[in-house]
Amino acid sequence: MRHSTFFWFVLPSALAMFLFIALPIVSVFTQSLHVAHDQVVEEVETCAVFSCTTELRVNAEATAELYEEAPLGKFAGLDNYANRSHLAFDEVSVVWAQASGPGEFFNGIYNLPFYKALTFTLAYTFIVTPLVIIFGFMIAVAVNSLSALVKGPIIFVSLLPMMVTPLIGSLILFWMIDARGILGSTLQYLMGDPSLSLKASSTLTWIMLMVYGVWHSAPFAFVVFYAGLQTVPKDTLESAMIDGASRWQRIRYVVLPYLMPLTLFIALIQLMDNFRVFEPIVGFNAEAHATSLSWAIYNYMNADSKLLNSAATTSMLTIIGVAILLTPVLVRTWRDFNRR
């Protein structure tokens, strides 16, 4: 295809991505370098009968004018990144100096909002992703051995947790694990503790969110693995059997290596999707015990006085996180591409 034809074909799509994905990243970066204007304060003298007092008042008009002139706010360089809400260099060094061991140091920085969100996001990403792969593979193997008659309905039911809107899915589970909901009261009964509440404990909240994550994403891994299992070369399996390989050995040495590329694909998609974990925290109302980077950004923007600069700074740090996460994949693809 000629360059000019290619250009016109790709133009609408590329333009949409440039305007609404590439430029916003520039916009986020610019916003993260600014802070809100100071409010204009003026001295006002009010004279009563006997004495005059001066007091300080905020001049709302003048403040609004400042924003009219420079909507971005005041240029602040990298101050946003260093302040307490983000990388918090001062606070971290204080904690570092005072902490007696790694545990205490970790507890210290966990109280800082950015590190709290980062900890949960990383824990969620790296715990849920492998569990999704393992769980999805187990379902795929189990379904694969059934007769064709029941496969259709089983696949239908299995798809549901993935298709449902994430916020709605988490709400549905949240209502069930409520202390007065069916799962919540069953757990209370099983534990023999009528005051048990999943919402009150940080550990239980984390587990709940991760269970939701696996529930929501396992169908995706299942479907991909299931399709992969249909194409496993039968000849290789049979010759392994003739050589005396047990069922387990056949899975370990024939099926698993064959499915390896699929596993990498699922891992890549899941890492990208789990790193942006957001809706479950809103749905489970879990922000007291677990916050994620995406949730932190949402929270800044949703505040009454929209903290756009803080949101932008956290966004920028999140984008850096995504970049670090993707680097191995990109380097690998780049090598493969050059070899060709």
């Binding site: 360059h3 290619f6 790709v10 590329a14 991505m17 609404f20 994905i21 590439a22 430029l23 916003p24 990243i25 520039v26 916009s27 986020v28 916003q31 909507p71 971005l72 990208m272 790193f275 942006r276 957001f278 980077l293 995406s294 950004i297 949402y298 800044y300 923007m301 929209k306 756009l308 949101a311 932008a312 956290t314 966004s315 920028m316 999140t318 984008i319 995504v322 996460l325 993707l326 994949v329 990109l330 693809t333 591409f337």
Partner: peptide, 29 residues
Amino acid sequence: YRYVFWLLMLALIFRAMPHITLVSGYLLP
């Protein structure tokens, strides 16, 4: 051409962007 590969890679990177980070770029403009 070579740029096809680059466009697809760029799309992959864009696919990884958390949506909420983009929204924080939209609000002010």
